[in-house]
Amino acid sequence: MGLCDDLSHCKMALVIAVLMDLLGGVSLLVGVFTSLKLNGEEYGDVLVYSGVLFIVASLAGWVLWYSGNIEGLPTKTELGQPNSAVDRLARRVSRKIFSHRRKKYYSSRV
């Protein structure tokens, strides 16, 4: 019901990507359209290059946000297919690892 309900997961990655795009765009436009001179040297190129770097770096945030919002495929059991031997083996190994970690965690807390 709120403003961000459609954004679903990974809101922090979205915020980072949008901020990086805004910083990069502002830096790029300021570097292109203003004349920044300090002690007779032109520094507009630095802003242009840093703006491009911000925009390119924001792609990582967009990829994280998009990949975090991909809905998973239905499992074989949801589709009505029986479990295979590989599925049972993977589940058994996963349970053993988890139970080992749980025993280690509880023994360290005592």
Rank of each mutant, 00 (worst) to 15 (best):
L53N: 06
V63G: 00
P82C: 04
L79F: 06
F54W: 15
A90M: 14
L38S: 15
L28G: 00
A57N: 10
S27F: 06
L73M: 08
V86M: 00
Y66E: 11
L38M: 04
F54Q: 09
V32R: 03
A57W: 07
L29F: 08
T34W: 12
F33S: 08
V26G: 07
Y43P: 04
N83R: 11
G44E: 04
F54G: 03
T77Y: 00
L28T: 00
I55K: 11
L47G: 02
A85P: 04
F54L: 11
V32P: 05
A90Y: 15
L28Q: 00
Y49V: 09
N39H: 13
G51E: 06
F54N: 05
Y49P: 02
P74R: 05
G80M: 10
D87G: 13
D87P: 04
T75P: 01
S27E: 10
G72Q: 15
D45Q: 14
V48N: 04
T34S: 10
T75K: 14
G72K: 14
I70W: 14
L47H: 01
G61K: 01
L59D: 06
V56R: 02
A90G: 12
E71Y: 08
V56N: 01
L64W: 09
V63S: 02
V30K: 04
L79Y: 10
L89E: 15
S50C: 09
E42F: 15
I70Q: 11
N83P: 06
I70L: 11
S27L: 11
G40C: 06
W62I: 05
V56S: 00
S35N: 13
V30S: 05
A57P: 03
V32K: 10
P74D: 03
Y49S: 00
G80K: 09
V86C: 05
F33Y: 14
Y66I: 14
R91K: 15
V56Y: 04
S50L: 15
G31F: 02
E78M: 12
F33V: 07
I55G: 04
G44R: 08
L36M: 12
G31A: 02
V46L: 10
T77H: 09
G68M: 05
L28V: 00
L38E: 13
L36Q: 09
F54A: 04
W62E: 08
V48I: 12
W65R: 01
Q81E: 15
N83E: 14
G31I: 02
V52P: 06
G72A: 07
E71N: 07
F54K: 05
V56I: 13
V48G: 00
N39D: 01
S58K: 04
L64R: 08
W62H: 13
L29Q: 10
L29Y: 03
N69Y: 05
G31K: 02
